[in-house]
Every structure is written in C-alpha cells, then in structure tokens.
C-alpha cells in the first residue's frame, strides 16, 4: 500500500499533479507572473487543499456510494471549501488584520480553484487511497504547485527575451514551456498516473 511519503513524492515531483492532470494550470500561470505572490498563494492553497481533504475524507465514507450520493459529493466538497473560506477570512481579519489586507485578493482564488476541489474529488472518487495517503497527496500537490510556480516564474523571466519570435512572446511561450516540462516529466515517470 502506498504510504504518505509515496503519495507526497509522486504528487510533488515524479508525477507533478499540475503537469500530469492540468488542474490549477490557469491559476499557476496567473500567480507565477508576480514573484512575491508565490509563497503566500502557495501557503493559502496548501491550507485549503489539506483542510478540505481532511474534512471530506470521513464525510465521504458517511454519505456512501449511491447514485444520488455521487451527484451530491462535489456540492458537499465545494460547500465545505466555502465554509473554510469564510472561517479563514474572518479569522485573518480579526486576528491578523495587516496580513489580511495584504493577501485578501489571493484568498478567493486560492480557495476556489480546480486544484483544491479536483484533488478532493479524486481522493473521494478513489476509495483505495488511505487517509494518510490522502494527506500526503494533498500536501504533495501543494509542494508540486509551489515548485512549478517557481519554475514558471523563472521561465517567464527568461522567455521575456528579444530572441523569442514576437508571436511567441508571453503566454504562447509559457504554455509551450509548461508542455515541454510536462513531456519531460512524463518521459521520466511514465504515462501511468497515480491519479487515474
């Protein structure tokens, strides 16, 4: 059985979730444009992903595997993330107002995105993942997102270069860069994903 560290390493490095599934790629491209956003955004993403998984995992077992339960699961996950978002906003605003003012624009984007909800749905879709494995997968996903954000920021800075043909400057070169990274990772780890 895959353990916490196996899932962590797979999701962060060997089969980086963003590159192998595409989840969170738009958010990655947006957040990587500003170097100062990487760490606060990554921390918020980690908070929401891990807490959502921790709360949804036991609830998922409670609601069962019926047809209606299957339809209701995504709504349950998104509602839990919404409640977590409200708690985080209220707590930060009351306890750490200066921090809240600095990061308040990042909070909704970090809470409601494909990565947070997608990971919770995948874990919840695969009962084969153990609780520790689920935590490892969510933390590994966030570590992988942080690593890729840093690589993307470095890439974006280097690709802003007069040697790059005009039509490819900006978004086209970033997408091709991420495509090459994804291809390289796939060549390294194979096309069979832990998330399938």
């Amino acid at each position: 059985m895959l353990t916490f560290f196996d899932y962590f390493l797979a999701a962060a490095f060997l089969q980086n979730v963003v590159l192998m599934t595409g989840f969170g790629s738009s958010v990655l491209i947006k957040s990587s444009r500003k170097r100062t956003n990487i760490l606060p955004f990554g921390a918020l993403l980690c908070l929401f992903t891990t807490l959502t998984v921790l709360i949804c995992y036991p609830l998922d077992i409670l609601i069962g595997t019926g047809v209606v339960a299957k339809w209701l699961r995504p709504l349950m996950i998104i509602s839990i993330t919404a409640v977590l978002y409200v708690i985080v906003v209220i707590t930060l605003n009351k306890r750490f107002p200066s921090l809240y003012r600095r990061i308040k624009r990042l909070i909704p984007v970090a809470a409601f995105n494909n990565l947070v909800i997608g990971i919770a749905i995948i874990i919840n879709h695969q009962f084969a993942v153990s609780f520790l494995g689920a935590v490892g997968l969510s933390l590994g996903t966030c570590a992988g997102f942080l690593l890729l954000s840093w690589l993307s920021t470095e890439g974006i800075e280097r690709l802003d270069n007069p040697d790059v043909p005009k039509a490819f400057r900006g978004l086209p070169s970033i997408l091709i860069y991420l495509g090459i990274l994804s291809l390289a990772l796939m060549g390294f780890s194979g096309s069979v994903s832990i998330l399938q």
Partner: peptide, 22 residues
C-alpha cells in the same frame, strides 16, 4: 495515444495562442 496526455494540449494551446497573437 500520447496526444490524450496534458503535454499535447499545452503544446497545442501554445501554438494556437502564437497564431492568434500573429
């Protein structure tokens, strides 16, 4: 069959974005 993997879509989108840019 690899065209169904995300890297193919990244590359395809990159070239489509460059075409629209041009």
């Amino acid at each position: 069959s690899e065209a169904a993997l995300p890297y193919a879509a990244f590359l395809l989108l990159g070239f489509m974005a460059a075409f629209l840019h041009w």
